[in-house]
Simulated assay, not measured.
Amino acid sequence: MARPVVGIIGNRHMVNDEYPAQAVGLSNLEAVAQVADALPLMIPAVPDLVDIAHLLDVVDGIVLTGGRPNVHPSHYGHEETEKHGSFDLDRDAVALGLIHACVDRGVPILGICRGFQEFNVAYGGTLHPEIRELPGRMNHRMPTTGALADKFTNRHAVHLTPGGLFARLFGADVIEVNTLHGQGIETPGTRIVIEGHAPDGTPEALHVKGAPNFAMAVQWHPEWQAGIDPVSRPLFQAFGTAMRKDALRRAG
């Protein structure tokens, strides 16, 4: 069987602060290629360049990666403030529709960090602009100092729903993950099932209720050293397995 093709959404990027580009982190490409055993294909987060229906005729799965810009609050009925940070309206336009299209067609889709938040917004949920300001919450943002490996090191536990999709996938009810995000889920959207929480109550893992195929997302960054991490590896392997099973089904 040919390796599955995975569309990985890009992020707006400026080369030398003047040349517009689209970019995907190397860790995302490596996780898809080396752990999910698939061929990574970058999708430009530019609505004028992407036809979602045709895209899903080409790929076997989709990954919505993290990204520094946040989902614009107008998508979930909130007013824009300084706390919401920067935005990428083009990515919003591609990603939110792509989630619904993948779920409706049964195309496996994995959300990471911003992708996790996009899942929630796509189904009518809302986001906190700055969760570290909420009573009892920790600072989930990336540390401002230290080596990159230190910034991506595990920083807290995630308590999973016993017997849920994630607990069965990881073979445990408690896992350890990294954390590099400022925003988080405020109210879950319809069809969004939260299956994991940080010790401070922040939602960390979700799936789409009733999805006919893999439709899962996490708030942490499993792409970092996915080949050797005991949590990241089974997540990407399960994503790869879902794509191969779906390819066999479509081939009859």
Rank of each mutant, 00 (worst) to 15 (best):
A93V: 00
A95M: 08
L98I: 01
I99P: 06
A101S: 11
R105G: 00
G106R: 13
V107P: 03
P108R: 06
I109S: 05
L110C: 07
I112V: 11
I112R: 07
R114M: 06
R114T: 03
G115P: 04
Q117E: 13
E118F: 02
E118C: 01
F119T: 10
N120H: 15
N120L: 01
A122D: 13
G124W: 14
G125D: 15
H128A: 04
E130M: 02
R132V: 06
L134W: 14
G136F: 04
G136N: 04
G136S: 10
R137K: 15
M138K: 14
N139K: 10
H140L: 11
R141L: 10
R141T: 05
M142D: 00
T144G: 07
L148K: 14
A149W: 06
D150K: 11
F152D: 00
T153V: 07
T153C: 05
T153I: 01
R155G: 07
R155S: 10
H156S: 04
A157E: 15
V158P: 15
V158F: 10
L160A: 12
P162F: 02
P162V: 04
G164V: 13
F166W: 14
R168Q: 15
L169C: 01
L169D: 02
L169I: 12
F170T: 08
D173K: 11
V174T: 15
E176C: 01
N178L: 08
T179L: 12
I185Q: 09
T187S: 14
P188Q: 09
G189Y: 11
T190Q: 04
R191E: 04
V193W: 05
P199I: 07
D200G: 08
P203Y: 09
P203E: 11
P203K: 11
E204A: 11
H207N: 10
H207A: 00
H207M: 03
H207G: 00
K209Y: 08
A211D: 01
N213T: 03
